[in-house]
Write a protein that binds this DNA or RNA. Structure first.
Length: 884
RNA sequence: GCGGUCGUGGCGGAAUGGUAGACGCGCUAGCUUGAGGUGCUAGUUGGGUAACACCAGUGGAGGUUCGAAUCCUCUCGACCGCACCA
């Protein structure tokens, strides 16, 4: 037996030494700088760029590691990979910091960027840093202003007075999407309603396209597509005008228009209801204090107290009557109701209590009747009754005169057809209408740290665009943040400017753009960030776009992704790109979560200060320094408020970037949350050391690469080769599908197989040539499989294996398919569906041979007993089932 | 309320109609090293057995199938999204 002593005395792998060395080597070789004229097929992998908040967090580590695995893998597969990085650098935290710490937003932002760039570089990401930019660079927002002006010229921008969500803490307007439960999404302050003149991007012009194109985004998660579909909220319905019968002394309009998606239920109508803000309600309220009070109450409840009595349906009877469009003798009462929204449809509905739960709740409270008009299948219409639950399922029309017996679809069609033909006051009664829930995108923000909206207000000429040659409109730097509100508004000189048209006195627009604008086209800019003349070069963008794989958090499922999809369409309409969809493939990763810890006083304690003792039932935590008991709380998203964060810098300093990367990819499926734990990190670190030992042991046993021994394989070396190529094919498949946790498992399996073979070889006196070859091959492939995930360790091992080039520039190995098929296969054998035995048989054995072999097995005979064998199911290559 | 996702060992998870628990963490035993937190070997779903055999088992109850973690129905639970959207 060969004596080896090397294992115990060998130096451990030292990431602190190796990682910076390889990062420098990649940099020197310019391996990740992407040339736009590279003729190879393009692959664009992009992770959502970070907000420069100060330091990177574990979520970034996970996000950027996943993208880097794909980038490195695709590079090895021969693609010209575009993998850029930049900074989503405008936004309110910079202004908050300015207010709190008296530091200028620009200074604060660029200092954060410098810190975070250094941190990201320490992760060894294969990024093309030559393309880096920040959205607060004038060289970036100059082009964004140009896009705005082009959109303006194309009619894609609107300026309108609108009721807006006003955040009284941040002193800014919020998009509807940024209001969560009546509160500002950042400040958490109760949102007020205000009338302001605002700039809007007309995203609703593309509502239909944004909705229908979702069907073709087949590399997007179904969940995200569904969320967008719900957000856009397309519905097909009918506008119906009801004649209004007035009352003496009450001013009433001649008719009222409602929107309905259920015109088939028109004969089940019991009432008409309008929103408190509906013109009719407002007109009536002018002469009716009671109604005015009711409307005011509804508006208050709408924003603040809805949680308390949200279920209660309230209405105010106007005394007016509406005439049923199919029966002049049929009158319906008109209510003002708290559950009708002015923002949707026409702000008026007809209520059909039998088939809409809200309407049913309403009539129960107001003593109106219920007439079912849709009867479920297999139910007798004579006995069908509605109790407490409205019926919104399928069925046949009843109690509906000429519609009786029709399906819902046919009845909708029939009603639409008749009402389109009927007329009321020289206009048709009914009009088909596709409606959307989506609203235009208000982009005006009363903030300093954002992209200035490039227009000038002139008393004589009105709104005048800033001429393109005067862009960018840069932010003035001499601003102060000692009072809330927008410093641009009170700037002494910046706002005053000559009107470009008449030369008279003008005033700059002081609103800046929503930062979602900045992130709606940065991925296009990355394709040619050096172009000073235009936002993009359509030819270059056309070659690189769409992004092949976009990776980021699920929290952007609606806003950022929908705005970006709109922007591509708008940029296409203005000639900047030639495609509609920015992201062909989308992946939404899970969060990084961690246990929470509290001390005896209930204060949060950070993981770095906690020591865990014991395990299982006896597992408990104490303070690392004081020894005081610590309560272990629930597992939560890492957040500063709960102090359950782990600093990537600390992890990289203690274990190296590769360990952090490996742990982020192991175990948890990438779309699910991953639990950060000290044990897990240590496990990852042990594998780093193990791989290093394995490679060193191997080069001791097989000193040099072995060639030409493939053809003379013995059974053991063949087994190892099969394991090697199985892992290779498997990892390739799993990276393509972003199943990184399975990649990790397969790499472990290959490492186990290699280790077993190596142990066997070391016990022999001499390693035969075929085994030497197989061991070398396995080690090379193993290192190459590891390379996208732990690139520094892989380079070190690659060097140790005697390669002179970098593994980062080595093509991906090709799996030998002939090694993936077995000559002899082991088939499980079931009797009546229960596994009883297995047989090993030639892969191409015919059915009769398999049946005979199976029936001769003792275990099968025992299980079958005296019962006759009814049939034998043979699934080739998979299983045999004997049915007795 | 509506829509969706998901329930598998002590834990993360694997298996997408064909041997349930790959791989890892943790744990147990032995060996090794050492001050140790390292390394190696074996074991680790429950019941059962000296060991096999065997029995049960993927939240629960039914069903389809030769065969179900996987498909269908109902039900319980967790999480996410949307919400008076006509």
């Amino acid at each position: 037996m060969k004596k080896t002593t090397g294992t115990m005395t060998r130096e451990r792998y030292n990431p602190k030494d190796a990682e910076p060395r390889w990062q420098a080597a990649w940099n020197d070789h310019k391996l990740f700088a992407t040339k736009n004229d590279d003729p190879r097929p393009s692959y664009y992998v992009l992770e959502m760029f970070p907000y420069p908040s100060g330091r990177i967090h574990m979520g970034h580590v996970r996000n950027y590691t996943m993208g880097d695995v794909v980038a490195r893998y695709k590079r090895a597969k021969g693609f010209s990979v575009l993998h850029p990085m930049g900074w989503d650098a405008f936004g309110m935290p910079a202004e908050n910091a300015a207010m709190q710490n008296k530091v200028h937003p620009k200074e604060w932002t660029y200092a954060n960027i410098a810190t975070m760039r250094k941190q990201l570089k320490s992760m060894g990401l294969s990024l093309d840093w030559a393309r880096e930019f920040a959205t607060c660079d004038p060289t970036y927002y100059k082009h964004q202003q140009r896009l705005f002006l082009d959109f303006l010229a194309s009619g894609l921008v609107d300026r309108k007075t609108a009721k807006v969500n006003w955040d009284p803490v941040d002193m800014t307007v919020l998009a509807n999407e940024q209001v969560i439960d009546g509160r500002g999404w950042r400040s958490g302050a109760l949102v007020e309603q205000r009338e302001l003149t605002q700039w809007f991007l007309k995203i609703t012009d593309y509502a239909e396209s944004l909705n229908s194109a979702l069907d073709h985004l087949d590399r997007w998660p179904e969940k995200v597509r569904l969320m967008q579909r719900n957000w856009i909220g397309r519905s097909e319905g009918l506008l119906v005008r009801f004649a209004v019968r007035g009352q003496p002394g009450v001013a009433a309009p001649a008719d009222i228009q409602v929107y309905t998606t259920r015109p088939d239920t028109l004969f089940g109508a019991q009432f008409i209801a309008v929103a408190p803000d509906h013109p009719l309600a407002q007109a009536l309220a002018a002469d009716n204090a009671e109604l005015a009070a009711f409307a005011a109450e509804c508006r208050r409840a709408g924003t603040a107290q809805e949680v308390i009595d949200k279920a209660e349906k309230k209405g105010f009877d106007t005394g007016l009557k509406a005439v049923h469009p199919f029966d002049p003798a049929w009158e319906l009462p008109i209510y003002v109701a708290n559950f009708v929204l002015m923002d949707y449809g026409t702000g008026a509905i007809f209520g059909c209590p039998a088939h809409d739960q809200r309407d049913l709740d309403f009539v129960r409270a107001h003593g109106l009747g219920v007439t079912p008009v849709v009867c479920p299948p297999d139910v007798d219409p004579a006995t069908f009754k509605i109790d407490d639950t409205a019926y919104d399922g399928d069925g046949r029309l009843i109690n509906s005169r000429f519609l009786d017996g029709m399906s819902i679809g046919a009845a909708k069609e029939e009603v639409a057809r008749r009402l389109e033909a009927a007329s009321l006051g020289n206009r048709p009664v009914g009009e088909r209408k596709v409606n959307f829930r989506l609203r235009d995108w208000g982009i005006s923000r009363q903030r300093y740290w954002g992209c200035p909206i490039p227009v000038i207000h002139c008393e004589a000429c009105g709104v005048v665009p800033v001429p393109a040659e005067q862009l960018p409109v840069t932010l003035p730097e001499d601003v102060a943040f000692d009072v809330p509100g927008n410093p641009l508004d009170r700037h002494p000189t910046w706002t005053h400017v000559a009107c470009p048209t008449c030369g008279g006195p003008g005033r700059r627009e002081t609103d800046t753009m929503d930062t979602f604008v900045d992130s709606s086209w940065y991925f296009v800019r990355f394709t040619d960030p050096w172009d000073a003349a235009a936002p993009s070069n359509p030819a270059i963008a056309g070659r690189r776009m769409p992004v092949d794989q976009y990776i980021g958090g699920i929290e952007h499922a609606i806003l950022h992704l929908l705005y970006s999809r709109f922007f591509m369409r708008a940029m296409r309409a203005t000639g900047h790109v030639g495609l509609d969809e920015p992201f062909a493939g989308l992946f939404t990763q899970g969060m990084v979560v961690h246990e929470t810890y509290r001390d005896a006083d209930g204060g949060w304690v950070q993981p770095a200060d906690v020591r865990i003792e014991g395990s299982g039932e006896g597992r408990r935590a104490v303070h690392a320094e004081t020894g005081a008991p610590i309560e272990i709380g629930s597992i939560e998203k890492m957040s500063k408020s709960k102090r359950n964060t782990v600093d990537p810098d600390d992890i990289i300093a203690a274990y190296g970037a590769d360990t952090a990367r490996w742990f982020m990819l192991s175990d948890s499926p990438p779309e699910r949350d991953v639990i950060w734990s000290e044990e897990g990190v240590q496990g990852a670190y042990r594998f780093v050391q193990r791989l290093w030992r394995l490679v060193n042991d191997l080069v001791e046993v097989v000193a040099a690469p072995q060639a030409g021994a493939e053809s003379t394989l013995g059974p053991e070396s063949l087994l190892l080769r099969k394991a090697t190529h199985r892992a290779l094919a498997g990892v390739e498949d799993d990276i393509e599908r972003l199943r990184f946790n399975r990649c990790v498992a397969q790499i472990y399996e290959l490492a186990n197989a290699l280790q077993a073979a190596l142990t066997g070889a070391r016990e022999a006196d001499a390693v035969p040539a075929d085994m030497g070859f197989a061991l070398r091959e396995a080690a090379d492939v193993l290192v190459q499989l590891v390379a996208p995930m732990m690139p520094h360790l892989a380079e070190t091992c690659w060097e140790q294996l005697g390669h002179e080039d970098l593994v980062a520039e080595t093509p991906w190995p090709e799996a030998d398919r002939s090694l993936l098929v077995e000559d002899e296969i082991t088939l499980p054998v079931q009797v009546n569906g229960k596994r009883r035995a297995d047989i090993t048989i030639a892969r191409d054995a015919d059915r009769a041979a398999i049946e005979a072999a199976v029936l001769s097995l003792d275990a099968v005979r025992r299980a079958v007993g005296d019962a006759p064998v009814k049939k034998i199911i043979v699934v080739p290559q998979r299983i045999v089932n004997v049915v007795a």
